[in-house]
Nucleic acid binder design. Structure first.
Lengths: 119, 119
DNA sequence: CGGGATCCCACTAGATACTG
DNA sequence: CAGTATCTAGTGGGATCCCG
């Protein structure tokens, strides 16, 4: 039998050409890792997340949170039904499997800053 | 004293709000990690890289290779000056510091495929 | 307070054709 | 062989306004 197809990987309906790109598909983008990085330490409210990421816009934060939720990495808990809403975000069990990776990503970033930064 | 500025990190003239995003700025995007993943095992020629990534276009591969080179992660060696060109890409010493991270990214992707894939 | 709706721009990446 | 040129589509992300 022949296999010309590059045998794509599949997750949540999206196909990836290799295991590395699957990971990047889930945590890639400008903000997802930053969100995960902060949620890795604590459960946080929307407004708390915003404070840790002062340069993100509300819309973008919402979209990224939604994407992470759809990929099953974080969960969203609503505590009130009346206008002073309280929503908390935290990692799911699946999301927690990412912790060592996120930590490595952060560590390498630190390493670069210490050793190669042109700041 | 007060420190209102979110104290940005700096690398190669680009600023990042946190160490995790710095890393993602260097290895993020749809193809960079895939390239690094393949170069982590071997030095490869342009055409060999293409074979390992059948779905990327030539233009995109060129751009990503150039970006990785500019960030100092890979190096480009030209072996001929006449038309049958031979160019090899490999990791720099700096790029090699990423190997454990790339491996972790690939490993997590594999883990997801094995345990959560809907393929 | 926690977003959703809308509009817009810049950048990423694809398709195809061509060149040193 | 290893790219570049051009043209285009898709998407990430910003700004602003609005709503429960």
């Amino acid at each position: 039998m022949e296999e010309n197809e590059p045998k794509m990987l599949n997750y949540k309906g999206t196909k990836y050409p290799c295991c590395a790109s699957l990971t990047m598909g889930l945590i890639g983008g400008k903000w997802k890792t930053v969100i995960l990085y902060h949620l890795m330490h604590d459960t946080l409210r929307y407004s708390e997340l915003r404070k840790t990421m002062p340069t993100v816009t509300e819309r973008t934060l919402s979209l990224q949170l939604k994407a992470l939720e759809e990929d099953g990495l974080i969960k969203r808990k609503v505590y009130t039904s009346k206008p002073p809403l309280k929503v908390e975000y935290s990692l799911t069990d699946f999301g927690k499997t990412l912790i060592p990776l996120i930590q490595s990503i952060a560590d390498w970033g630190d390493y670069v800053v210490e050793n190669y930064s042109d700041a």
